[in-house]
Amino acid sequence: MEYYELLFRVIILPILALGFGVLFGLTFKGIDRKLAAHMQARVGPPIRQPFRDVAKLFTKENIIPENSIPWLFSVMPILCLVSAVSVLLYTPIGSFEPILSGYGDLIVVLYLLALPAICLVIGGFASGSPYATVGAQREMVMMLSYEFPLAVAIISIVWKLSLVYPGENVFSLGFIMSHPVWNTVGFSGFIGCVIILFVLCATMPITLAKIPFDIPEAETEIAGGLLVEYSGKNLGLFYLADAVKTVAFASVVAALFFPYGIACYFDVSTTGGYVIDFIFFLVKLFVVIFIGLTFIRVAVARIKIDQVAHIYWMLMTIIGLVGLALIIIDSTGVIS
């Protein structure tokens, strides 16, 4: 690889990914807040409000509590944002290839998705507040609960693809993107895929810690939990990380289940095709975020941590395994 290409890949593209994540993460956050407000019969903040919030947080004083571990406390927000952005490096955006395609695959994405939560946990423990400690414990329990159904969901898709395309690098998101899973399954497999999609959508609010799973933050219970001691720039970074993570998770879901582009239906140049696909990609993200986040968070109450563990360990895992079983039945031809 030429040095300038290396430079491009290592510096320019991640910066672009960060810009993309922050810009659209905050925009989607604004839309999410506006739509949630409308569903609650309120007017809600203007869509640019998240940008203002971040701008304000960055100008505020950054307080590091006395009984915290200062370096750990301050480094975690940065690490959280970095890990959220690095997910974006592995996901296809529009019809662009993933920036780091060939250097890592879905398994890496799975780990990277867990990393922001781990940063939150460490940051929470490092802040030395009993509320943050309770929040961190809850976040850990939540991670343990949702990791397995999430893994089941992702593995079932990849396993199916590996059967159909033996010898290929099926774990690469770029490959999954160009070979939609829907084309490979029969009827029972289709139902299996729908179930897996449901499981994945159900893990979305819990991964992003939104109602009904905002248990680690739960402002009426533990006063903001993990983030209780964070302020100013550090809190702003966590806010950005949350926004970027939302986009990243939604684009993983979009890449796994809705990898289609619509540029081929338009008579446009290659550049025009990229633009149309990019816009269509944003629409897909919006749909995923609306269903998986906004709608759920206004329609239910916050549940308790033991109930989360129960739902995800028992219910979601079983649902996920049923989906997997249906896909297996479909591919081995027991029924069809």
């Binding site: 739509l35 407000a37 409308h38 569903m39 609650q40 019969a41 309120r42 809600g44």
Partner: peptide
């Protein structure tokens, strides 16, 4: 809430 989405805020 879905119905409310298409109504005017209160």
């Amino acid at each position: 809430v879905f119905k409310q989405l298409f109504k005017k805020p209160f």
